[in-house]
Write a protein that binds this DNA or RNA. Structure first.
Lengths: 240, 240
DNA sequence: GTCTATAGAAAGATAGAC
DNA sequence: GTCTATCTTTCTATAGAC
């Protein structure tokens, strides 16, 4: 029951109808879960529309229609289009944040960077719409994301910069500019979500198969590791 | 007279006023150039608005206002919003295409790839708005760009893939997946245009200085060359 | 070529019956 | 919680005077 990523109008309508004829409107047991269910459902649909048309280009009517609901219901759950958009941005950031944690899974730069690249590639595959919403927001000037960028992303980046500089000092990473490396990782991995349509057009295929996406992931990991000059530390030569 | 990249409303209004009081409307000498001048001016303003809000999010009123013109004048020069958008996309592609030529400047992969990365970074710096329009269009599904992608970008990519495969066979490039390398180059270089707002927020600076952009360019070139394992061919060991 | 006025559709949001 | 009807604003595009 609770996988709500159905973003096609048809499936959604069907789902809505299912509960509709339980006409007794006040079963206390279900009240809270109706709200939760409708909110997540609307959020998933909103993510798809915001991804495709950006904040200004998206209309609440389109989102409601995709959700199989009247426009008024959308405004019942989310007072304004902006409030809905904020919730979507927040959701997307939480996943970004989860992937970011993989960077600290190991002190070996090969494992840490490799694992992070893998996590970001997996995210691009699993939730391309979220990545697109993020990209759209940044391209439009990031006006609604200053808080997230300054209070969450910036501190994360700064601590990772310090870590990368330590690796360089220890000789397990080439003397790269840490920010340039991180931007390269973000840009390259997110490209497979954001520029999906271009990749499809250029490859002539309808979609990248799971197998070829995995192969591409391996290749991206190899290339990023080569770019960064990462190597696993010799277990004995660490003098400090 | 003919540098029309002024995209601020104020400057544009001033420019418009200049010619306005030459009230004789039919000097044959000036007719054609008025059209050309207004068209390029509107195109520059449209590029800025489309970059910031995407095709659906942009309004002809905003574009006209930025150009310092009544909305009706915009429709006099460009019949529909879509026609205007197409012209912008076409302009942007022409510059992409010019940068693409640098790939063939040399048969040495270090020079060819390095030069191409430099050209793309320079383009990101010189015309970030164009890059954003492109990115927005792809994120939105590339519906208005299928022609350019299939007839212009795809053939270019395929011939470059062949070239890269030859380099690999000759041993002057690591055995990389050519498409993955090209996507990495595009993603990384365009990131400095498209994600400008994020970079600004994370660096805490208002804008990347010319000097630090040049340093970043050098670093990106080094990292891409390392990722691709490119090396200049020994002048003697070419047996064919 | 320029510009005011406006048509006709679609936008965000709300009222109020159920 | 749901949904029809509607308010107000803004949208693309055009008419028609100058």
């Amino acid at each position: 029951m609770r996988d709500d990523d159905t973003t096609t109008p048809a499936a959604n309508l069907a789902m809505r109808q299912a509960g509709a004829d339980a006409d007794a409107a006040h079963k206390p047991r279900r009240k809270a879960s109706i709200r939760a269910s409708n909110e997540t459902h609307l959020l998933a649909c909103a993510e798809a529309v915001f991804a495709e048309r950006g904040f200004e280009g998206a209309s609440t009517a389109q989102i409601a229609e995709r959700a199989g609901l009247p426009k008024a219901n959308l405004h019942y759950y989310f007072p304004t289009k902006l409030a809905l958009y904020w919730r979507v941005l927040d959701d997307v950031f939480e996943e970004w944040n989860a992937a970011a944690d993989t960077f600290d899974a190991s002190d070996d730069p090969v494992e840490a960077i490799g694992g992070y690249v893998r996590a970001k590639m997996a995210l691009s595959r699993r939730r391309p719409l979220g990545s697109k919403v993020w990209a759209n927001e940044i391209i439009s000037g990031a006006t609604h994301m200053q808080d997230i960028l300054l209070k969450r992303v910036k501190p994360w980046m700064e601590s990772r910069v310090t870590l990368i500089e330590r690796w360089i000092a220890e000789g397990v990473l080439a003397p790269v500019e840490p920010r340039t490396l991180l931007y390269m990782i973000w840009a390259t991995t997110q490209h497979y979500a954001d520029f999906e349509a271009q990749i499809r057009a250029l490859s002539g295929k309808r979609a990248l198969s799971a197998a070829s996406f995995d192969a591409t992931t391996d290749e991206v990991v190899r290339m990023i590791l080569r770019a960064s000059g990462a190597r696993s530390p010799d277990s004995r030569d660490r003098s400090a």
